[in-house]
Nucleic acid binder design. Sequence first.
DNA 1: CGGCGGTTTGAAATCTGTCAAGCGGGGTGG
DNA 2: CCACCCCGCTTGACAGATTTCAAACCGCCG
Lengths: 236, 236
Amino acid sequence: MIPDPRHYDDQPPHVTRLCKLAPLTPDEIRQLTDLCGLTRIVPARREIAHDREPVRQGSIILSGFAARVRHFRDGRRQILHLLLPGDVVDWCQWAGAVRPTTITALSDVKLALLPHAGTAGLEQAYVQSNALEQGYMFRHLARLGRFDAYERLADLLLDLHARMAFAGLAEGDSFSIPLTQEMLADTLGLTGVHINRTLQAMRKDAMVERRGNAFRFLDGRRLRSMVDYQPLAITG
Amino acid sequence: MIPDPRHYDDQPPHVTRLCKLAPLTPDEIRQLTDLCGLTRIVPARREIAHDREPVRQGSIILSGFAARVRHFRDGRRQILHLLLPGDVVDWCQWAGAVRPTTITALSDVKLALLPHAGTAGLEQAYVQSNALEQGYMFRHLARLGRFDAYERLADLLLDLHARMAFAGLAEGDSFSIPLTQEMLADTLGLTGVHINRTLQAMRKDAMVERRGNAFRFLDGRRLRSMVDYQPLAITG
DNA sequence: CGGCGGTTTGAAATCTGTCAAGCGGGGTGG
DNA sequence: CCACCCCGCTTGACAGATTTCAAACCGCCG
């Protein structure tokens, strides 16, 4: 059911990802590949779509990071869910749906409109993508509720690595994410200062190596064991 | 689109709730009402369904509170999402789905199997219920990430009141929830001790009155303003 | 060269957790 | 009917994690 990842490594991330979520016909794959023509680019920090607006049509992220965000009156903000290349945004199942959160570009983001799910393969891929997203949200809840700073960061990095790898965007234990320490803080419910100190602690412990935006796990086993990490099951 | 709530106040909570989520035919309503015969009762603290199991058929909660829960090796646990009377559990859209979290009864819970969504009204009600659940999860994330203890508790109580009222289970600003302080703590990522102190602070501030399981908002306006509370939009 | 966003560092303040003990009511068994 | 027990609630003192505030540093770009 899950094809060999290497078959897709030369494809754009959104094609790699959706092909792993459902068996797609060559025609469906072509639809996805052709998207690379009709795209929209949203620069970093710009809002992509607003809370409570009616949803017209779903999108898919071709490159860059975005996030579902909640802003508070006093300037605080919380990143509710990170959106990575290949992720489906605003796919919904009934007319009259309303977007449940604001969506903001964290880096420059390239988007395409989501092909209508008229075919079985694409339909299943979207449903699966939705289920995966829900799974990652449940993890994020557990992270914010019961993990301390070190565990939160470790667990988030493990999730990001898994998601990037799934879209063909990781090399072994290395991956790159365009997030500032402030953005990681807004994701994890911490402050930028504390993220900085926690990253230093992880480096001192020889858990993670970091050069700019590139991360590399030095002791993935210990990291996973610390947070009892279990990869999300691909269901179907 | 949203009928007058009072029309349903003499109905069981699950009927009240689903009737507000979609226009149902008399026949569909009868299907829901008839569920009260074929039920299963799960006693408090017992597991209802386990993480990663294949989902056979959805259920609906007729009475009592349950929760999606994550347990950690060291005994910590996090309540990821509270399930209230009228809530739909395990409704899913494709064969081979797997339950993303363990589900546990917090009080004695009465469940019924979910009628198959063969009709337009029920289908829409389930989709809407799903969307609402997702909305409440996003709020819970923001709560855990950026609110302090006082705000978390206030915001959670406001959500619970809204959800209970929606199912016809609140009287004005009063509502009753079968949750121990420990369970509230596991929901909010705090300790039981701290929940206790925070409740006392709210009483001292004349925000909330509490007798046993019954809560009453004494100053709903101030409470809502403190956490910038906005009711979840019913979409459709 | 100057400025800007992002990172790093330190010291003090605050929030929340931990531990430990006592209280209270409701149910059970004698 | 009473004694007992258990679970949940309450309280206090203390420890620890994280935030806050402030300043300095850094690389990069105009």
